Simulated scan of single mutants.
Amino acid sequence: MAERIQTVSAWESLFRAQVSVMRTLSAEFPSDIMSLNEYDVLFNISRAPGRRLRLRELNRQVLITQPSVSRLIDRLVARGLVEKSEDPLDGRGTVVALTPKGFSLFRQVAFVHMDAISRNVGAVLDDEELATLAALCDRLRIGITGDAGPEAPVVEA
């Protein structure tokens, strides 16, 4: 077990780095097309098999509250970006799926966002450091949640 002072110092470094990176990425995000929260929802649905995800699972993966996710999904449905249907395995549940229009718009924004990530993160860390950072973050997340999560999607041109 790590010393408490070292643990808190590492947490502060991680937190401050995350805030700095997110502020920069938010400033460069194409929010005229969609919000970061909308992107986060579409990103998580895009990672699911068949680009379909139970609403209950989506709520566990995003950073906004369940009522906010429900309202956001309704807005995405109204824009034709996702579809809602009854969960065939649980009639009380809901499944959300990306529409072709939703996936196309998601990809458009994903490429812009990936460019910003590459410029702002990839330019600061080399390949080995990026691999170490990813491994450490995955280990931390899995150690806390026990959830390895799905593989990251490949967003093809």
Rank of each mutant, 00 (worst) to 15 (best):
M34Q: 02
G102Y: 03
F106V: 06
G93N: 02
S85D: 09
P88D: 13
R92I: 07
P153Q: 10
V62I: 02
A17D: 10
R79A: 04
I64E: 03
P150Q: 14
G122Y: 06
D126S: 08
D87W: 11
T65Y: 08
D115I: 05
D32T: 09
P88N: 04
V82W: 00
R92L: 12
R51H: 10
Q6H: 10
L136N: 09
A2V: 10
E128R: 03
N37A: 15
Q61Y: 14
L42E: 04
N37C: 08
A17H: 08
H113C: 08
R75V: 02
G143C: 05
T7A: 15
R4E: 07
V41F: 02
A123Y: 01
R16A: 08
L98T: 02
E83H: 13
E12C: 13
L25C: 03
A48P: 00
D126V: 05
T99A: 01
D115L: 12
L14W: 07
P67L: 08
R75Q: 04
Y39M: 02
V121F: 01
S104G: 11
F43Y: 13
R16C: 02
E57N: 12
Q108R: 15
A97G: 06
I64Q: 11
V96M: 04
L133D: 01
E128G: 06
D90Y: 09
V62F: 01
V121S: 05
T94V: 14
E28L: 07
E83N: 14
L76R: 06
W11P: 00
P150M: 09
G91Y: 04
V155R: 11
Q6D: 01
V109T: 10
E128A: 11
A152G: 05
I45L: 02
I5N: 11
R71V: 07
P30T: 06
E86N: 07
A97W: 00
L72P: 02
V8Q: 11
D87Y: 12
T65E: 15
L72K: 07
S85K: 15
A123C: 09
D147T: 00
G91N: 14
C137W: 04
E57A: 15
F111M: 07
L36R: 09
I5D: 10
G93M: 08
R51Y: 10
L133R: 01
G80Q: 05
D90S: 12
P49I: 03
F103M: 10
A123D: 09
G146Q: 07
T7H: 06
P153C: 11
R47V: 01
I45F: 04
I73Y: 01
V62R: 12
V112L: 10
G149S: 03
G93W: 04
I73M: 07
E12N: 11
S26N: 14
A131P: 00
A2L: 15
E57M: 13
D127S: 10
L14S: 11
E38N: 06
E38V: 01
F43N: 09
D126E: 08
G149L: 03
L25M: 02
P88I: 14
S20G: 12
L130R: 05
G50K: 06
A135F: 02
